[in-house]
């Protein structure tokens, strides 16, 4: 197997009306590692369109065609010949748990089984870099386990794997190095196992400067400057970072106390905003105001009248 040599740089990708979709960045690939990238569906589409011109990459599309009238075994045999591969078909079937189903026709398979067939094809393709779109979406538990196992198998063989998904939870099943796109480029998620953080806190009782949010059993930590605003709806606190909501277990007043030194401001009974990100103050009527944040989404945060005076003082107008 050839190793990939040059780092792969992605140019800035814009939509047809000139809005920036992806900033220029370098793909965070390391051989023998799985990395994840947290992107929205449209960004994934554009990135894949760009990447498929690379011949050393194998791309695993979410939607991929199949020869429906062939059996699993026949279509894998076809792929094997087409790619001149040395992998034994039965091995690929074994890893993906399809050995018993190999005589079934593709059109009779369930979605999860199809996903496994695609995985078996991926094993046969033997390219140094595998780009995988939405590996865990809509799968049954058994297949999820198989996907995880196959990815680890590839990783141990020294392949480079990059997962693209709109769901952070999915990415975190397979890897701890997950990136997201900021306006300036790639940013790595600061992920740590929940247990290790608890231990630290117990020992030193230090005050964390990072804001913990929770997704499944993982804690995702954000630096305060990354946060756009925090919202509390029906007692649930959500931290918004680049338009994505991350649930947080702290209360708004706790967060306010922690964040006030970082230039955050309680602009409303249920909102805290990062003042560094505020671009405009809009007056709707005498009693209603809102703050518009910088960034491509132009997020709106309500501002209560009582807080307007306070805000003016802070900004100095």
């Amino acid at each position: 197997m050839e190793k990939f040599q040059q780092p792969i740089k992605i140019p800035t990708i814009t939509t047809f009306d000139g809005r920036m979709l992806l900033p220029s960045f370098q793909l965070p690939l390391t051989s023998g590692e799985i990395v994840g990238m947290h992107l929205d569906v449209f960004q994934i589409d554009c990135l894949l369109k760009y990447l498929q011109h690379y011949s050393n990459m194998n791309i695993f599309f979410r939607q991929e065609g199949h020869y429906e009238r062939m059996t699993i075994f026949e279509s894998l045999k076809f792929e094997k010949k087409l790619y001149n591969s040395n992998i034994e078909i039965d091995d690929a079937l074994n890893i993906t748990g399809l050995l018993k189903a190999k005589k079934l026709k593709i059109k009779n398979l369930s979605y999860s089984q199809l996903q496994r067939v695609k995985l078996a094809k991926l094993l046969i393709h033997e390219k140094p870099i595998h780009i995988i779109e939405e590996p865990y979406q809509n799968l049954d538990i058994e297949t999820k386990r198989i996907v995880e196992r196959t990815l680890n198998f590839l990783k141990e063989k020294g392949y480079t794997i990059c997962l693209l998904s709109a769901s952070l939870e999915d990415l975190m099943i397979s890897t701890n190095s997950v990136f997201r796109i900021e306006d300036t480029g790639l940013e790595k998620f600061d992920l740590q196992e929940e247990n290790s953080i608890d231990m630290k806190v117990d020992k030193q009782a230090i005050k964390l400067e990072k804001i913990p949010t929770k997704i499944k059993d993982k804690l995702v930590l954000f630096n305060p400057p990354e946060i756009d605003y925090i919202e509390s709806v029906e007692g649930e606190v959500n931290v918004f970072v680049t338009g994505v909501a991350y649930p947080c277990s702290l209360t708004l007043s706790e967060l306010e106390r922690r964040l006030i030194h970082f230039g955050f401001f309680r602009c409303h009974r249920s909102y805290i905003v990062n003042l560094q990100k505020v671009r405009e103050v809009i007056t709707w009527s005498k009693n209603s105001y809102s703050l518009v944040l910088s960034g491509k989404e132009r997020l709106n945060v309500p501002l209560s009248r009582s807080k307007l005076v306070e805000l003016k003082e802070i900004i100095g107008i």
Partner: peptide
């Protein structure tokens, strides 16, 4: 030209074609 690849496509086409009445 790789005969092996073209033959693979031929065999695949034959199977698909013969099962598509």
């Amino acid at each position: 030209l790789s005969m092996k690849r073209m033959q693979a496509i031929l065999v695949k086409d034959y199977k698909e074609f013969s099962r598509n009445l």
